[in-house]
């Protein structure tokens, strides 16, 4: 597309370039003055039309954007808002905000854009159950150590943990969604 633009400029080189000329979408756009059309009375009385026009002292129509706030209230928000501060955590829905004081320096797990923990349970077709932690920053192996330490003290059985260093995710074997979430919350993420 840029090539096309450049080629077209080559064609009109030496002539004055048009700048900021608005495109004429309809042929009628120039032919009629919209105010004249709107204020036209049938049969046409110039005095009546003058009273209606927006230039008159008491115009027939008043343009107001006052009520547009009610429309804005209905429009969906473009980005997910930051949740308001609550008096008591966890909230009735069980949501807890991040706590920067608890967070270790070596690594970090970032909340999703919906302010939720990025750990996902999946039941595979062969019956295998996994929990995946995503959006990991920093030393992923330290996170794995801490997680396995948490499992050692909280789960009876040994838990297999897979670390994908390039993809920045950790896969836990078995349905340990609750334990993983509790671990992440205890670390302040």
């Amino acid at each position: 597309m840029a090539a096309t633009i450049a080629r077209n400029f080559a064609r009109i080189r030496g002539h004055v370039l048009r700048r900021n000329t608005p495109a004429m979408l309809f042929k009628h756009a120039r032919r009629y003055n919209h105010d004249e059309v709107n204020n036209y009375t049938v049969p046409y009385f110039p005095e009546e039309a003058k009273k209606r026009s927006s230039d008159a002292e008491y115009p027939d129509i008043e343009v107001s954007t006052e009520d547009f706030k009610f429309v804005e209230r209905l429009l969906p928000q473009k980005t997910v808002p930051i949740p308001d501060e609550q008096e008591l955590y966890p909230t009735p829905s069980g949501w807890v905000p991040t706590n920067e004081n608890l967070q270790p320096k070596e690594y970090g797990v970032r909340r999703t854009r919906n302010h939720m923990l990025p750990c996902y349970y999946k039941k595979h077709n062969n019956g295998r159950e996994t929990v995946k932690i995503q959006r990991i920053y920093g030393d992923i192996w330290k996170l794995k150590e801490d997680l396995s330490g948490y499992f050692a003290s909280n789960v009876e059985f040994p838990v297999d943990i897979q670390v994908h260093e390039v993809g920045r995710w950790i896969l836990v074997r078995g349905n340990y969604t609750e334990q993983v979430a509790q671990f992440l919350l205890s670390k302040g993420f």
Partner: peptide, 12 residues
Amino acid sequence: ALAASDIGQFNL
């Protein structure tokens, strides 16, 4: 626009 129009590999 005029300078880049002569050269194919500089595009806007």
